[in-house]
Design a binder for these strands. Structure first.
Length: 480
RNA sequence: GGGGACGUAGGUCAGCUUGGAUAGACUGCCAGCCUCGGGCGCUGGAUGUCGUGGGUUCAAGUCCCAUCGUCCCCA
């Protein structure tokens, strides 16, 4: 028995080490030769593709188009909006040479594309008839992470989509911000089975250059909050410096209203953390590259022939039922080895078929999430598989929801607040709205405001820090 | 921002304290067997710029200096 090839750390004991092992050993990604960069392997990329296609379909259905922007942005352009530039400059990679000659206006490897996109938009938009303009970019962004890198969660380059829209009316732009966030929520909850909390960021935490930022947040099992996607209302903060303006119906030159929004492969990190266990990855069926794996069991040559025959037949049937199924016919591994292997990779369903099953016209169906095994007759196998996958998807979501609510605490006393943050809780507390109190909390506890939920009500209790009347309730946690 | 650890086979690491001849283990990999229902067993095989550069020494994986890189923890 060789444990080395499996996950050797426990999720509950050494979370960080456990996480890294799952990423590497389930073959989602590998470390690149440059610090802070990872290589996405086919299995990991495949998960990204499911996520991508789900978002992509929804974007296209709502009138968004895809396009592509170059990776290099001249400094003169990046610095045009001062707040934005100041916020990003510490983590920008600069290209300063082309060949042997130094570049005068040095080039940034895009940390985000607002500036580049809007300099183009200003050329493309002339009339109210050109609006709304709704373009999405699937690309990568680069932000230098010097310390504390972690696959998918903190890397110096990451895959994402960034949407940039332009509207004639303020209200229309704000509706866009909201409906994109709602689309994100739907995707994350329905596909990844991760429950999220929607709301606004505080002014301190909002996107640099935005009027406000809406966000979806969740808390991870190690007690750190993860920002899972953001949708920003930019107002006219960018349209003015970038000259994104149009002639309206009254022939008046008007600055446009803008939004930008994005999700990244961070969501894969969340997926691993939320659903994974000591055996490795646990994938929700909707994003699992392989939804069911068939493991044939045999010893003698006759058994092998008959089992593999039936297994192929089953594979075909299930596949026709719209399920992504794989038959593991590798001869060099024992069934036990394969069980562990596919469990580590998080395949939601395993179908075992051996001589004993053949004689009874059934298979053994084993669920990855709860390890339960059931016998299923050949005739009902397709439906049985589909039902099991649906059950797994909803059970995973239900369990994650329970965990989220058990990690959410309402607190009105600062001493209690500190304790709960220390325990890795998502703490909901009254807040006066001042940045000073926010900073005090950050200094004293390491926590910041993750989200001010949309449904937050002003509390009867005073601000958790300064004891002056509270304006709202906010959710605090230490973050990734 | 502060701290800690590490770099030796594809992977995980031992060897370094106290320098010594051909650098090891497990795992993985390759070939062949095996009645393969939870990492089964057996036989044989291939695999190393000991991170890099310099120094000390008769002799350096081991000691010294420099350098590059990686991982982890804490605010």
């Amino acid at each position: 028995m060789s444990k080395e090839i499996g996950i050797t750390s426990k999720k509950s004991e050494d979370f960080s080490e456990w996480y890294t092992q799952v990423v590497i050993k389930a073959q989602l990604a590998d470390y690149a030769p440059v610090k802070g960069l990872i290589v996405l392997r086919p299995y990991g990329y495949s998960i990204w593709e499911f996520l991508k296609s789900s978002v992509d379909q929804k974007l296209k259905a709502t009138g968004h188009e895809n396009a592509f922007l170059p990776v290099l942005i001249p400094e003169s352009l990046l610095s045009r909006e001062a707040t934005h530039f100041a916020g990003f400059t510490p983590e920008v990679f600069w290209v300063t040479y082309s060949g042997d000659s130094e570049i005068g206006d040095r080039l940034a490897l895009r940390p985000t594309s607002e500036t580049l996109a809007y300099s183009m938009y200003s050329k493309w938009i002339k009339s109210w008839r050109d609006l709304p303009l709704k373009i999405n970019f699937w690309n990568s962004a680069l932000r230098a992470e010097i310390k504390a890198t972690k696959p998918f969660l903190r890397t110096s380059e990451f895959l994402w989509q960034e949407g940039h829209t332009v509207h004639a009316e303020k209200e229309e732009a704000e509706n866009e911000v909201t409906s994109i966030l709602e689309m994100y929520r739907k995707t994350v909850e329905e596909e990844l089975a991760i429950p999220v909390i929607l709301g606004k960021k505080s002014d301190k935490e909002k996107f640099v250059g935005a009027i406000y930022t809406t966000t979806m947040e969740s808390i991870m099992p190690d007690g750190k909050a993860l920002q899972m996607g953001t949708s920003h209302f930019l107002g006219q903060n960018f349209s003015k410096p970038f000259d994104v303006k149009f002639l309206d119906r009254q022939n008046v030159e008007t600055f446009a209203w803008q939004t930008s929004w994005g999700i990244s492969w961070r969501l894969i990190g969340a997926l691993i953390m939320v659903h994974g266990d000591d055996k490795g990855l646990v994938l929700p069926p909707r994003v699992a590259p392989i939804q069911a794996v068939i493991i044939p069991i045999y010893s003698s040559q006759e058994d092998k022939d008959s089992v593999l025959n039936k297994a192929s037949e089953i594979k075909e049937n299930i596949s026709k039922g719209g399920i992504r199924v794989h038959l593991d016919s590798r001869d060099e591994f024992t069934p036990g080895y394969k069980f562990h292997d596919w469990e580590m990779k998080g395949v939601p369903l395993r179908i075992e078929i051996g001589p004993k099953d053949l004689s009874k016209n059934k298979v053994v169906l084993a669920r990855r999430d709860n390890m339960k095994k059931t016998d299923v007759a050949f005739e009902v196998l397709v439906d049985g598989t589909i039902n099991a996958l649906n059950d797994i998807q909803s059970d995973l979501f239900a369990r994650a929801k329970t965990i989220l609510s058990s990690k959410t605490k309402d607190v009105t006393e600062f001493s209690q607040f500190k304790k709960e943050i220390e325990n890795g809780m998502f703490v909901r507390s009254p807040w006066c709205g001042s940045q000073k109190c926010e900073e005090t909390i950050k200094e004293d506890t390491g926590a910041d405001i993750r989200v001010i939920p949309f449904d937050a009500k002003s509390s009867e209790f005073p601000c958790i820090v300064c004891k002056s009347p509270s304006k709202t309730t906010a959710m605090f946690a230490r973050g990734y």
